[in-house]
Amino acid sequence: MKKILHILRRESAQARPYWEDFYFETQDAGATVATALSSLHAENRISPAQGSRFRPVIWEHSCLQKRCGACSMIIDGVPALACDTRLSQLKGDTVRLEPLRKFPVVADLLVDRSVMMENLKDLSVWLEAEAGAGSEDMAFEASRCLQCGLCLEICPNFAAGGSFSGMAAMAPLSRLIARLPEEQRKQTARNYKKGVYSGCGKSLACRDVCPAEIKIDELLVKSNAAAVWNRWNSIK
């Protein structure tokens, strides 16, 4: 398999962006965008400017098995995980790689997603007391959120700094709601409405892009029932 990687690069946040092309060839049918990015050396460059120094491509990675949410980027125009995207499933000879657009770029394909963690702090996402009885299944599903940010990237209503925190906050809040101690209901409901319910336009584009395949619509229905409609007993 042969591919050309067309990568939008930037040496630092302040530097001017530019495109650079790399050639990648592999026998590995399971090779992903992450495989390609890990294997780029100087000799993979296509027609580098005379005398220009090779700069390794910067991107975030950790698990390489779609369990950590590190490697989010835009692949051929679609927000996705590099380690979850097989080269063989991409049409055409050229793969276009860009950093997520909703977060500040640090360098190359690496973006700063701290706003996601800040949002969770603003929404007081923690249990104030011992977890109550509730729904293990719901808590499990919600716990699986990778904080990858892909749902935010695709969401028409999310902007960093806005009051809507998107599904990346819905999932962690739903984890609490699943086993919320009674005394915390009011506070969490308030935060849920503020950070999730009131801003969500229900486009559900997030559902299709979520690499953890979290059942976002089901979680939303359950959490709305409890936190918005005050039907806490519906969580079992």
Binding site: E60, S62, C63, R67, C68, G69, A70, M117, L146, Q147
Partner: peptide
């Protein structure tokens, strides 16, 4: 090095 969500513990 990275936020907690990326740590090996998650695997």
């Amino acid at each position: 090095f990275q936020p907690s969500e990326r740590a090996q513990s998650n695997l």
